[in-house]
Design a protein around this nucleic acid. Structure first.
Length: 512
RNA sequence: GCGAGGUUAGUCUAGCCUGGUUAGGACGGUGGCUUCCCAAGCCUCCAGCACGGGUCCGAAUCCCGUACCUCGCACCA
């Protein structure tokens, strides 16, 4: 996460005069109290930082978010989806470059235990160009040669070592070196050959995967924003770099507006594809960025909330030749949600070399090693940002204004009074809606207003209430979370109405 | 990792400086009476001093260690 600024800009979310955005602490309170997420193994004293569990509401929110990602990106583009192993052998990461490039050379002061990046420290002190891939012995030689000491306390520096952000695991009786994957992408590259042969793939083709990745962060912080175990929803689009792009695909995404912050700090709004292609580097990149933008629009973020930030050469991952971070403007400043990398043929080429397998595929008449565009989406961060954007304090209530397509529960069902005949009718409606696969919640305790408030706080957009009139004319009240208005709906038309409301377009969404 | 500050029911918080009845309150939740369309009322009950060690006749309170949280620095494929 970069560029954390304290300024929070109000965006075009539904607002009333008195409502107020929730602070980070208040979002955490909601999460803990209502069961969105909480520290993993928290009852133990040695529970680990950077690991969080999702509770019932967080789980439902996550499921909905992933479903919408499939709907707007994976299914829309006829991508294929896989689900790979979390533990991968050493050779995968030797080839991918993660073993050498994800390693930071570290040196620690023997006296005050201050830890320094060896390469940066040495080059700072000596003015030399220091390659971070030098061996620990070479760093040791440099430190002795220039007689370098701890910049803080003047103490003697210990032995340089390497810190790798990957979790190593020992597999089998031999304890063979293997690693928890630091990104989901590697499964896709190692499976690419089989998938291309057996799934009759034609370029360009997206291969998607959602799952856990693991990074041994030194200082995990801010709950879901900096995790050691995180969920990524990744798409690797394989394409022929010398092929042409089908322009007719642009038409359906014409209305998608994007903002780009270029390396030189200039903010531009992009509204047509030729301009987007120029700013993002190619037509195909512009296209997939528009697809990504539309997904975020569909879960409630607008172009005002979001931007693509171009990364300079030194900020990019080691495998990327061009890279943009898709960021959201939150109460914590601009936060990176999606890493968008042009990985060229880096991965297929290195894996091909290391495994000695030909990973080229046919594109029409020609044999090519495809290039890759990657959209690596942080699911946990996106969930936090949904809470950040939509959790609001109003004078008389806290309300989570999640769009219906991601809200954990779509609707709640209440009897106005927990007495017959209202109870049995309400229960019947609840059972029916469950069988039709709606995420619904039943509550009959306490006053009706209290039950509405509870649902407001966890983001349930609709409440169905059975009252005396229901007994007369088979209608119920359908109460809207945001306006608190209610209308009467026939019981028989309830499911259809809820389905319609769930799919109503949120601001900024276009109908495909 | 370093530095600073912090941790009291599910959540928020008083008490800590100056050790001494049964750790107080609010919100929340349970059950009951009542009311019934936007957190009504009354009663009942539930639930807590982060963990470990030390000092002391006695520790939420003082000391040490550990974990976690927040902020800053560093890191962030």
């Amino acid at each position: 996460m970069r560029n954390l600024s304290t300024s929070s800009t109000e965006s075009n979310s539904p607002t009333s005069i008195a409502e107020r955005r929730a602070s980070y602490e208040e979002i955490l309170r909601l999460a803990l109290e209502r069961g969105f997420f909480f520290p993993s193994a928290e009852i133990y004293n040695d529970s680990l930082a950077g690991f969080w569990d999702y509770g019932p509401l967080g789980f439902l929110l996550k499921s909905n978010l992933e479903r919408e990602w499939r709907r707007w990106i994976v299914k829309y583009e006829d991508m294929i989806e896989m689900d790979g192993a979390l533990i991968l052998p050493k050779s995968v990461f030797e080839a991918s470059g993660h073993l050498s490039s994800m390693v930071d050379p570290i040196v620690e002061c023997t006296k005050c235990h201050n830890r320094l990046r060896a390469d940066k420290f040495i080059s700072e002190k000596t003015g030399l160009q220091v390659d971070e891939r030098l061996s620990p012995e070479e760093f040791q030689d440099l430190i002795s040669k220039y007689n370098l000491r701890c910049p803080k306390c003047g103490g003697e520096l210990g032995k340089p070592s390497r810190f790798n952000m990957m979790f190593r695991v020992g597999v089998g009786a031999e304890n063979a070196d293997a690693y928890l994957r630091p990104e989901t992408a590697q499964n896709i590259f190692t499976a690419f050959s089989r998938l291309s042969k057996t799934q009759r793939l034609k370029l360009p083709k997206g291969i998607a995967q959602v799952g856990k990745s693991f990074r041994n962060e030194i200082a995990p912080r801010q709950s879901l924003l900096r995790l050691r175990e995180l969920i990524q929803a990744e798409v690797e689009v394989f394409f022929n770099p010398s092929g042409s792009f089908d322009h007719s695909k642009f038409e359906k995404l014409q209305n998608v507006k994007m903002k780009i912050l270029s390396v030189d700090g200039e903010m531009k709004e992009v509204s047509d594809f030729s301009e987007a292609a120029r700013l993002f580097g190619s037509e195909i990149i512009a296209y997939y960025f528009a697809l990504l933008q539309r997904f975020y629009n569909a879960i409630g973020f607008s172009k005002e909330d979001t931007r693509f930030r171009e990364l300079s050469a030194k900020d990019r991952a080691f495998y990327a030749t061009s890279a943009f971070d898709f960021e959201i403007n939150s109460g914590l400043g601009w936060v990176e949600l999606v890493a968008c990398n042009y990985r060229t043929d880096y991965d297929l080429s290195t894996h091909s070399k290391a495994s000695k397998k030909d990973l080229m595929v046919m594109d029409g008449e020609t044999k090519v090693l495809p290039h890759v565009i990657e959209l690596s989406l942080g699911v946990d961060r996106t969930m936090f940002m949904l809470l950040d954007k939509f959790f609001r304090h109003e004078p008389n209530r806290d309300v989570l204004r999640l769009p219906p397509n991601v809200a954990p529960y779509l609707a709640a069902v209440f009897p106005l009074i927990s007495k017959p005949p209202f109870e049995s009718v309400a229960e019947k409606i609840y059972e029916d809606l469950k069988l039709q696969d709606f995420a619904v919640f039943y509550d009959d305790s306490g006053a009706i207003g209290r039950r509405y408030r509870r649902m407001d706080e966890v983001g349930t957009p609709f409440c169905v209430t059975v009252d005396p009139q229901t007994i007369d004319d088979q209608t119920v009240t359908l109460r809207q979370r945001d306006s608190m208005e209610q209308k009467r709906v026939k019981i028989g038309e309830l499911a259809e109405e809820l389905r319609r409301l769930r799919n109503q377009n949120v601001p900024g969404t276009i109908t495909a």
